Amino acid sequence: MTLPFTYRPIIERPSIEWPNKATVAVYIGLNVEHFLVDRPSTSIWPGTADLVPDALNYGWRDYGARVGIWRTIESFDRHGVRPSVLLNSDVAAHYPQIIEAGRQRDWAWLAHGRTNSVLHTNLEPDEERRVLTDVVDTIANAVGRRPRGWMGPGLTETAHTPRLLAELGLDYLLDWTNDDQPYELTVPGLLSVPYSVELNDLMLFGNQGTSGPEFVRIVRDQYEQLRKETNPSGRVLAIALHPFVIGQAFRARYLDEALAYLAAQPDAWLTTSDEIATHYRKQISNWSS
């Protein structure tokens, strides 16, 4: 298999300039997902993950849609943050109230497969085309516009996914978490936009036992280091959040603190992944003219 990108180190690229002389483009990747009750998925304790029903783990995940998302929305509203929503298309049928809340706030919407209980793997091209078409059309009908970006469930793809996404009119993806800047993929018209599996609440709080104050410090450290590196070229800071993790009551104040810090930075551009892709395309056009 050939990778959908070529190697180009960050020291050998044209300079990226963000709007209003910002140095770091910051966006929140908010995972809004639906899980199947009879399939194992993301678990807080693997000991019951293969049971049907798995009340322990399913209930933990389901907290996000029932409670955590609404607490998280309050934080976003306080700090003027429009998240980039990584949306399972099944959410449209199961949690229409979340869709309506996002429509009212003009969230950015990205396709994130049907459900995070099924990885986007082992699909023949024709079958994958049908799956992707259904996901994109379902999201478009629910939110009122077609998604531009993609992130696979569990950041999974097949060898054909980028090409098929481009055929459907999508213009960027988040699956390849290998950079602090957007870059062009080898599929014409398709970009990679940075995402993070490290600055990610599921990894930090779940796998590494990070505390709330440590989370705030990590966000600050990431921002301050990227800002130092922006001469001469801008960077992207992506924060990945899951409502069943960051939406827990005892973590709410720390999300607030992290967002307050970022919103107060005069050289931060608080934006969406859609807007990052759009502005980067303008940069490409300027470089070639």
Rank of each mutant, 00 (worst) to 15 (best):
P9R: 03
L51Q: 15
Y172I: 03
V187I: 11
A55M: 12
W176Q: 02
A166D: 10
R114G: 11
T23E: 14
V52L: 06
D62Y: 05
P125A: 08
L237P: 03
I246T: 05
P83T: 01
T115M: 07
G80E: 05
R82H: 13
S89T: 00
E127F: 09
D77Y: 04
V131W: 14
G206N: 07
L185W: 01
P4Y: 05
N88I: 02
D38F: 08
W269M: 08
W150A: 01
G234H: 02
V193H: 09
N200S: 07
E275F: 10
E17V: 04
P153G: 06
V245N: 07
A140W: 08
H79A: 11
P243N: 00
N200E: 05
L123K: 13
L132K: 05
R71V: 04
P182H: 00
T115Y: 10
P4E: 07
S289L: 13
E229V: 02
R217T: 12
W109A: 08
A22T: 00
H242W: 05
T278D: 15
E167P: 14
V131A: 15
R281W: 11
V32Q: 09
V245P: 09
D179M: 06
L259K: 01
I73M: 15
S192A: 14
A258W: 00
W60Y: 14
A260F: 08
L110W: 04
R130I: 04
P266W: 03
N178H: 10
V219Q: 07
L170S: 08
A238Q: 07
R82F: 04
R217A: 15
A65L: 14
N178F: 08
R114S: 10
R105D: 04
N286D: 13
E33T: 02
L123Y: 15
R13W: 00
V135N: 11
D62C: 08
E17Q: 11
Y254W: 11
I276A: 05
L174P: 09
Q265L: 03
V91R: 06
E17P: 03
S89P: 10
N57Q: 09
G169M: 06
D171Y: 11
R129H: 12
E100R: 08
F35Q: 08
N141D: 15
D134S: 12
A249I: 08
N20P: 12
R71D: 12
A108S: 13
Y254T: 04
L270R: 00
V131S: 12
N231E: 15
Y58I: 13
S84H: 06
L155Y: 14
E33R: 04
T42A: 13
L204F: 12
P188S: 10
I139L: 06
R217Y: 05
T186F: 12
L226M: 07
Q97S: 14
